[in-house]
Design a protein around this nucleic acid. Sequence first.
DNA 1: TTTCATCATGTAAACGATTACAATAATCCT
DNA 2: AGGATTATTGTAATCGTTTACATGATGAAA
Lengths: 327, 327
Amino acid sequence: MATIHEVAQKAGVSAATVSRVINNRNTVSDKTRIRVEQAIHDLEYEPSVLGRNLRNSESRLLLVLIPSISNPFYSEIINGIEDTAIAQGYNILLCETDSNPDREAIYFNMIRNRLADGIISMDPTVNKEKLIELANTYPIVQCSEYEKDGSISFVTIDNELAAYQAVRHLIKLGQKKIALINSDEKFLYARERRQGYEKALREFGLPIKHEWIYITDQLGFQSGQQAMRVLLNLDDRPTAVFAVSDILAIGALKEININDLRVPQDIALVGFDKISFSNMTHPTLTTVAQPMYKMGCLSATMLINKIRGKRVDNIVMDHELIIREST
Amino acid sequence: MATIHEVAQKAGVSAATVSRVINNRNTVSDKTRIRVEQAIHDLEYEPSVLGRNLRNSESRLLLVLIPSISNPFYSEIINGIEDTAIAQGYNILLCETDSNPDREAIYFNMIRNRLADGIISMDPTVNKEKLIELANTYPIVQCSEYEKDGSISFVTIDNELAAYQAVRHLIKLGQKKIALINSDEKFLYARERRQGYEKALREFGLPIKHEWIYITDQLGFQSGQQAMRVLLNLDDRPTAVFAVSDILAIGALKEININDLRVPQDIALVGFDKISFSNMTHPTLTTVAQPMYKMGCLSATMLINKIRGKRVDNIVMDHELIIREST
DNA sequence: TTTCATCATGTAAACGATTACAATAATCCT
DNA sequence: AGGATTATTGTAATCGTTTACATGATGAAA
């Protein structure tokens, strides 16, 4: 690969002039500009990002922290982030943390090393103290999950309201015995969605029954299936279930199917996220849609603004209840 | 962030000595080593990857090209790549190409720029000429999809054999009317799996019926559903289906369910990939498992060996037919 | 013609590390 | 003690850019 000096030599100018041509500095005469461009073309020269970044101390790389790429919830968000970032000349580095603090530490170091210019974190299990500390010094935004104390900028939806509306939808359909399959409540979204669930029940004078709330420790299908197994074995069996993620809902659906119960006649089911699979189940799943692509775009824009030193405001986006066959 | 010079000053030595301490060069006395380490600790110094890489002209970053992160097939492979890479001191950059040549070009340039040390490509729709050309100069390996001419190192499975065994399994169950839902045959795996399908039919004296082979142009659920719709409308309807991916199979299953047909009694179904969803459908899906995690590990090892200048051999891995409820 | 702007280009110093080589200090051997 | 090794450290060049500053050329105004 040619360097800037070889180009300079070939064009009969100094490296500085070549650099000016590359960066569209206006102080280059048309004559030399053309000569330089010709040389760049002939040598197939590409500026070394390493050299440039060292000098400018920026890398134009954004870190995106997610717990697991296999969770389809993140796919659309990432598309949004990627499209926006590329349009602004940034590349993104997808970092799967597996909720593993060691991995996280590696990625945190990348920003200290100047190998990345900023972080978008979607990892709810992230080491909060470290992240907040890092956010004092470096540009960081959170997407979906966020810190209540406002120490880190974020893009999210109103989880409580969304859950409230989903449960209200079930109540309006005449459901009285509504269970909740929740994630670990160390996640803010889990706590908020539970609030919404309870709020809806209270508002319509329905009891909040302890045993109708199942909290999973994992996020996979199996957890949803396991949860449903427990709920179906209750003496006073619920007739509707609100699961805080489609993945959990699909696991639950599996267990319902195994027991030869019908959805929605015997058990109505609502999920959350509108992942593409939720439309492939039989029956299709009622769910809450988040504007994932848009959230991705906005997080990226927000982060890039932060990097450029602008002030940014937190964003709470709208959601939408998608009513399908399972209710 | 402190630089190496500040550390040197604080420890009362030269930057060279600090560098030697960091890189475990043995030519440093214990006395100074301890002083330097103390200074590094006090200043919370982290070496700048940018500076180091510029000097060494390496970035310790690996590019992983995938068409779409939302395809769960890639998740496990990526886990394998990531674990191996991190263990060897490399980070990976997940690049979603969306099969878009412009995006691809961006990522190809990163390796020219020295921003990445190598590429693992899993993108079958990749611009082949460019990739081959790049592979002449830079370390590149292909995982899963590969070039028949052997111009690029690869890790893969024996797609033809796997398809052959899947179809033979159906035949052994007494199936005589077996359809194929295939991907676009620009993909090598699609061509190979079709070969396996036809080979099994021929071997057992079954006819290869033109209208029982449906070729999709997309890879999503919808395509599988659409394919099944067509197959079900045939006068001479097949009683078994081999789909070349679980995603297509799940789409097909959806359509079968809609038509109130039973699996496997009315239609038997085999998928490919053993994605986690394939165990959540009702009934669960018979499928072909690829050792995805292992394939990821081996690709990463292979690439790192290439980067280090070693010769590497192509690898064909074993697969396994997973028999479940759908057959 | 002289004097100033203005414009185009070159020079050289960064950026933050690594490392060949040189220089010094410590140790050993006779 | 004197000379030869060896261990430790420093000096300075280098990687490939960008950019403040200096320089020289050109043209306009007086």
